[in-house]
């Protein structure tokens, strides 16, 4: 693995100086690389980035998020996607191209308050995020437990190549849908497994920046080591 130097930083901290490329949450002042948020800085061979520990969700094209219907207009649904922007799901995306506002009733498919797994089809600075449900695993969520965690901790919950989430899913037999916006739906037939999975997710949210988290989650879930050696230390 590449040699990565990590450090705890707050806004204004100089992470490094020299000819490096500023990546996420880093701002360049002359040849100084300065952190713009509270987080953990990582210096790679020719770039610097900061993994944030706080902050809301910023929509990104192709992200899978969980949204809540907050309203309808004649041609689209409006979604709360736990962000400063409201997501739009065009009615044609659900009804097909022959959608007509006089014939079809939006509320019959998705009503206000419904949770929906959606993908962000398009987003740029000038427009609100455009959503889609045209994909596998997308669409209305009928059952499960909704948990809100900090969006900055979602990568940690997933783990490297999905190791963390696999560990939880295997130990509890739960099905976990993770929205990049920090909204997570857990469904499990066994109530005990559900409670355990919820506890594990909350634990990751609380302890996201501490090392050896996978080990701790495993011991909390009572997983015997050996079956999944994919530990992460970031």
């Amino acid at each position: 693995m590449m040699d990565v130097k990590r450090r705890y930083v707050i806004p204004g901290d100089v992470i490094a100086t020299g000819p490096l490329r500023p990546e996420q949450n880093v701002f360049q002042d002359g040849d100084r690389m300065i952190s713009t948020c509270v987080g953990i800085s990582e210096i790679f061979e020719n770039s610097v980035k900061v993994i944030p520990l706080t902050g809301g969700y910023m929509p990104k094209a192709n992200d899978l998020v969980i949204g809540k219907v907050i309203g309808t207009s004649p041609l689209s649904w409006e979604f709360d996607i736990n962000s400063c922007f409201v997501g739009f799901l065009p009615a044609q995306d659900v009804f097909g191209r022959d959608y007509s506002p006089t014939k079809d009733e939006l509320r019959q498919r998705l009503d206000i308050g419904d949770l929906v797994a959606v993908r962000i089809a398009n987003f740029d600075r000038s427009r609100d995020p455009l959503l889609t449900v045209q994909d596998r695993d997308l669409g209305k969520i009928d059952s499960g437990e909704l948990i809100e965690i900090s969006p900055s901790k979602v990568p940690r919950l997933i783990g490297k190549r999905g190791s963390m989430i696999q560990t939880i899913e295997m130990a509890t037999k739960a099905i976990i849908t993770i929205g990049q916006n920090g909204w997570i739906v857990i469904s499990c037939e066994d109530s005990e497994g559900l409670l355990k999975a919820v506890e594990a997710v909350k634990m990751i949210d609380a302890l996201a920046h501490t090392p050896n988290l996978t080990e701790r989650v495993k011991s909390m879930l009572g997983v015997v080591d050996g079956e999944n050696n994919d530990t992460i230390n970031d």
């Binding site: 707050i10 806004p11 204004g12 949450n25 701002f27 002042d29 300065i34 713009t36 948020c37 509270v38 944030p52 520990l53 706080t54 902050g55 809301g56 900055s152």
Partner: peptide, 11 residues
């Protein structure tokens, strides 16, 4: 502001 995760050049 830093606690809210708003990007800042400096405190």
């Amino acid at each position: 502001l830093a606690d809210a995760g708003i990007p800042m050049r400096d405190l």
